[in-house]
Simulated scan of single mutants.
Amino acid sequence: MDELKYVEYETADAVATITLARPEKANAQNERMLDELHYCFSAAEYDDEVTVIVLRGQGKHFSAGHDLGGSAPDPDAVSLAEPDGAWHLNKIYRWEARKYLGYSWHWRNIPKPTIGAIQGKAIAGALNLIWPLDLLVVADDVEFSDPVVLMAIGGVEYHGHTWELGARRAKDLLFTQRTLGAEEAVQIGLAREAVARDRLWDRTHELAVQIARNNPFGLAQAKRAVNQTLDVQGYYTALQSVFDVHSVGHGNAISVSGYPILMQLDEMKQNLKQS
């Protein structure tokens, strides 16, 4: 990739740091950002000088999720409509299987520890970036949420919710659109620790450097042992199955409104502006 526009990448102390760099849009993910993220994760994966990978976001919020458009057109926005303006589920399914579920699944299985530094709001599609990570350090103002039931969809594409949160808490967040904060995240083991906002990046780097002192092959084997255990329990099969459930939501929206989602976004956008 010749130039990074929405993501920054740097290495130091055997740690690769990938930074979402679209703070004016609350790091909302358009197609180019996703491609840049995948490029950077792959660069870190195959760099023998890198032992640990950190993902973080500039600005007040880690990520507002997928970029669903706004007043100004975005030349890097996802466009899956046919030339006549019609939407077809097959095209949407193939694109999301590659760039949402596919990218996230690849990041989850990189044989190096990955750590997320998460602050502010982490909404819906932000979870596609967070669930694949091995460890999380959160700021004390963090708020996880997935309010896409408001759009008649059962959850985002990489649906690790039940594994990360437990069945009843996952249902609670989806049914009520409530947020999950720092204290609760640490209490349930979702986050390793919560720190003051101004300490988030430094503390995450400290942890990454500490882990990077270990034998790289040992780290890779430890990660594989845990991931493989989850997969034997049905993790990958569940992700694939629920991705199909997610896609049925798009099919329903197309049949009702001719658009892949039922656009009930005012409440979501207003909450983001007020925070």
Rank of each mutant, 00 (worst) to 15 (best):
residue 204 T to D: 03
residue 113 P to Q: 06
residue 102 G to M: 00
residue 153 I to N: 09
residue 224 R to D: 12
residue 216 P to C: 08
residue 202 D to G: 05
residue 134 D to F: 02
residue 229 T to S: 15
residue 177 Q to R: 11
residue 113 P to K: 02
residue 208 A to H: 03
residue 164 E to S: 10
residue 144 F to C: 01
residue 225 A to E: 13
residue 141 D to P: 00
residue 179 T to C: 10
residue 199 R to G: 00
residue 217 F to R: 14
residue 226 V to Q: 12
residue 227 N to H: 11
residue 128 N to V: 01
residue 173 L to C: 04
residue 204 T to R: 07
residue 209 V to C: 10
residue 166 G to P: 02
residue 157 E to V: 14
residue 102 G to T: 05
residue 223 K to T: 01
residue 208 A to P: 07
residue 108 R to W: 05
residue 184 E to F: 00
residue 216 P to E: 08
residue 172 D to G: 00
residue 220 A to I: 03
residue 132 P to M: 04
residue 171 K to H: 13
residue 219 L to N: 07
residue 226 V to I: 14
residue 238 A to G: 00
residue 193 E to M: 11
residue 105 W to E: 15
residue 236 Y to D: 13
residue 237 T to V: 09
residue 161 H to S: 13
residue 139 A to K: 03
residue 101 L to V: 08
residue 143 E to D: 09
residue 109 N to D: 11
residue 194 A to L: 07
residue 199 R to F: 03
residue 181 G to Y: 07
residue 122 A to P: 03
residue 212 A to Q: 05
residue 181 G to D: 14
residue 101 L to D: 05
residue 188 I to H: 06
residue 224 R to Q: 13
residue 158 Y to C: 06
residue 227 N to K: 12
residue 184 E to L: 10
residue 209 V to M: 05
residue 221 Q to F: 09
residue 170 A to D: 10
residue 219 L to I: 03
residue 189 G to A: 07
residue 127 L to E: 03
residue 173 L to T: 06
residue 126 A to Y: 00
residue 175 F to K: 12
residue 240 Q to W: 05
residue 198 D to Y: 09
residue 154 G to V: 12
residue 121 K to C: 00
residue 205 H to F: 12
residue 136 L to N: 06
residue 206 E to D: 15
residue 186 V to K: 09
residue 221 Q to L: 14
residue 182 A to R: 04
residue 233 Q to A: 15
residue 150 L to R: 15
residue 178 R to V: 04
residue 142 V to T: 08
residue 187 Q to C: 06
residue 210 Q to P: 00
residue 135 L to G: 04
residue 215 N to G: 09
residue 189 G to C: 06
residue 213 R to L: 11
residue 102 G to I: 01
residue 117 A to Q: 04
